[in-house]
Amino acid sequence: MKRRKIELAVISDVHLGTYGCHADELIAYLNSIQPKKLILNGDIIDIWQFSKRYFPPSHLKVLRKIIGMASKGTEVYYITGNHDEMLRKFSDTSMGNFKIMNKLVLNLDGKKAWIFHGDVFDVSIQNAKWLAKLGGYGYDLLILINSFVNWWLVRLGREKYSLSKRIKNSVKSAVKYIDNFEKTAADLAIENEYDYVICGHIHQPKKEHYENKYGSCTYLNSGDWVENLTALEYSFKRWRIYHYNHDRLSPFFVDEDLKEMDMDELIASITDKEVDMEEVNDDFFIDDTPSEDSNEPKQNHKSLDNQGLTQD
Rank of each mutant, 00 (worst) to 15 (best):
A231T: 08
S250V: 12
E191R: 05
M277A: 06
E233H: 09
M277F: 14
D282I: 15
E227S: 11
K237M: 02
N212T: 00
E191F: 01
M261T: 12
S216F: 04
Q204S: 13
C199Q: 12
G223H: 13
Y242H: 12
E260V: 14
D272C: 07
R248W: 02
E211G: 00
E278D: 12
Y244C: 03
A185V: 10
R240L: 05
L249R: 14
S216R: 07
T184M: 08
L266G: 01
E208A: 08
I270Y: 04
L258C: 13
I241A: 06
E265P: 00
D187W: 00
D283R: 06
E193C: 11
M277G: 09
T184Q: 04
D264P: 02
E296Y: 13
D247L: 05
T218M: 13
Y210S: 00
Y244G: 03
D224F: 07
Y234E: 09
D262V: 14
I286G: 02
Y234M: 03
L188E: 13
K206V: 08
E274P: 01
L258A: 03
D283N: 15
I190E: 08
N245H: 12
H203Q: 12
D179T: 02
G223E: 13
I286H: 07
Y214L: 08
L266M: 11
I267E: 09
Y194Q: 04
T184Y: 03
K213R: 09
D287A: 07
Q204T: 15
H203F: 12
D264N: 14
P205Y: 11
E208V: 09
F181P: 04
Y214D: 13
Y194M: 15
M263N: 04
V197K: 03
N295I: 02
V254R: 10
E208C: 07
E260Q: 15
D247W: 03
F181K: 01
N180K: 07
D257Q: 14
N245K: 13
D283K: 06
F253Y: 15
E193R: 13
L220E: 10
H203I: 04
E292S: 06
E182H: 10
D272K: 06
Y244L: 06
I241Y: 11
W239F: 14
A231V: 09
D195W: 01
D257R: 13
P205G: 10
E233A: 11
D293L: 05
N295W: 07
D276K: 12
E208Y: 08
E182M: 07
H246Y: 13
